[in-house]
Nucleic acid binder design. Structure first.
Length: 248
DNA sequence: AAGCGACTCAACCGCTCCAAC
DNA sequence: GGTTGGAGCGGTTGAGTCGCT
């Protein structure tokens, strides 16, 4: 299911992510955000390229990511959106909270594509293939009851690049996908004590060269972590040289 | 029980886009 | 306007798993 770990020429690790690496990445992004994916592995102590870290976070570790079976409703939504947008998986994913574009893409190729094609084939027996496929797509669009969220029209200046959860995720939300080992028991984390975990796997703040954090960077932060820095009207965050950055 | 092909899905690769200079 | 670097996207890969014979 996963690739054999190996190292490339530059010494960066490739392949399967170890639980230890996941912990480091979660700890770092949760604590400091992802202001620069390229630099992140260096500060997080990961022998990975930034791209790999980003992918792992976005597709697997990000808070709110749903694992497991797709509901009939979700599949229906994917089919409808694919009929409308084609292979624009990120667009489709933006309409399916908790699902990554990569996961949707995989699910489409593994299940829905066949199903969709099969239904097309059976329909073609009754009608000509071209017009039928076209009408099928059209009928999907006509009957489309899915409320399409266009990320390009629905962005705020501070969150344009990041899908912001509806509400601040709780710690349990953050780790909901990794607290319980999966049936196959591979690569999943069990965290009994978040505080110890954070202390163990993140460097002291004093050791960091802090950089600016944007709202997008903290959009994944659990509310409990943000609480000390948030008032009714302002959100403070510690940044370089012990400045306080007023976010609102 | 063993062999083998199909399936699954995490991860890599290469490309494009966009902002900063 | 050209160059550069980072982020994001979509296509593809390939090892593990499943299920059939």
């Amino acid at each position: 299911m996963v690739r054999t770990p190996c190292c490339d020429k530059s010494g960066l690790k490739k392949g399967t992510w170890a639980p230890e690496e996941d912990k480091k990445l979660i700890a770092h992004v949760t604590r400091f955000g992802h202001w620069n994916w390229r630099q992140l592995p260096k500060f997080a102590g990961l022998a990975r390229c930034g791209k790999s870290c980003r992918l792992r976070w976005m597709n697997y570790l990000r808070p709110g990511i749903k694992r497991g079976n797709y509901t009939h409703e979700e599949e229906e939504t994917i089919v409808k959106l694919h009929a409308r947008f084609g292979n624009r998986w990120s667009m489709i994913a933006s309409n399916l909270p908790g699902r990554s574009d990569n996961e949707i893409k995989n699910h489409w190729h593994a299940h829905l594509k066949k199903r969709f094609q099969n239904s097309s084939v059976s329909n073609e027996k009754a009608e000509t293939s071209k017009s039928k496929h076209h009408s099928q797509v059209e009928s999907i669009q006509e009957k489309d009851s899915v409320e399409i969220v266009d990320p390009f029209q629905n962005t705020s200046p501070t969150t344009s690049q990041t899908q912001t959860p509806d509400a601040s995720p709780s710690l349990s939300d953050i780790f909901c996908t990794i607290e319980e080992p999966a049936p196959d028991g591979n690569g999943n984390l069990v965290m009994d004590d978040f505080a110890n975990f954070m202390d163990t796997y993140t460097d002291p703040i004093s050791a960091y060269s802090w950089t600016e954090l944007s709202l997008a960077d903290i959009s994944y932060f659990p509310g409990e972590l943000l609480a000390p820095f948030v008032t009714e009207t302002e959100c403070f965050f510690p940044v370089y040289d012990a400045q306080l950055w007023v976010l609102s």
